[in-house]
Amino acid sequence: MWLPLLGLIVGLLLGSIFTFNIPIEYANYLAVAVLAGLDSLLGGWNAIFKRDFDGMTLITGFFVNTLLAAGLAALGDMIGIDLYLAAVVAFGIRIFHNISSIRHELIALNRKRKGKRQSHGGIDQS
C-alpha cells in the first residue's frame, strides 16, 4: 500500500529535479488538470477503502478528467468565460468529499480493527 505514496514522492522529486516548464499562458490549464488528477487519485483511494476499486476506471478517469478540465478551461478562455473557475469549484468539492469519505472509511476501519483486537483479547483472557 505504500507504493502509491512512494510513486507520488518520486514524481514530486523528479518534477522538482527536472524542472519541466510549460508556457505561462497554459499555467491555468495545468493547475485545473492537477486538480482533476488529484480528484481522480483521491477517488481511487476512496474506492480502495470501499473495496470498489478498478484500475482501468482510475486510469481512464484520470486522463479523461485532466484533459477535459484543461480543455474546458481553454474553451472558456476562447469564448471569454472563466470556465476554469467552474472546474476548480467542482473538483474542489469532489476532493473534499473524497477526503471526507476516506476519513470516514479510515475511522470505520480503525474501529473495526479495535473491535477485533478486543474480541481476541477476551478469548485469551477467558
Binding site: 502509491p4 514524481g11 518534477g15 516548464n21 493547475a31 486510469i59
Partner: peptide, 26 residues
C-alpha cells in the same frame, strides 16, 4: 491496481511540481 495507483500518483507528482515551477516562473 496498486501499480496503476502508483503510476497515477507519480504522474500527478510530476504535474504538481511542473505547475508549481510554472507558477514560480510566471
Amino acid at each position: 491496481n496498486i501499480l496503476f495507483l502508483s503510476l497515477i500518483s507519480f504522474i500527478l507528482g510530476v504535474m504538481i511540481m511542473t505547475s508549481i515551477h510554472t507558477n514560480h516562473s510566471a
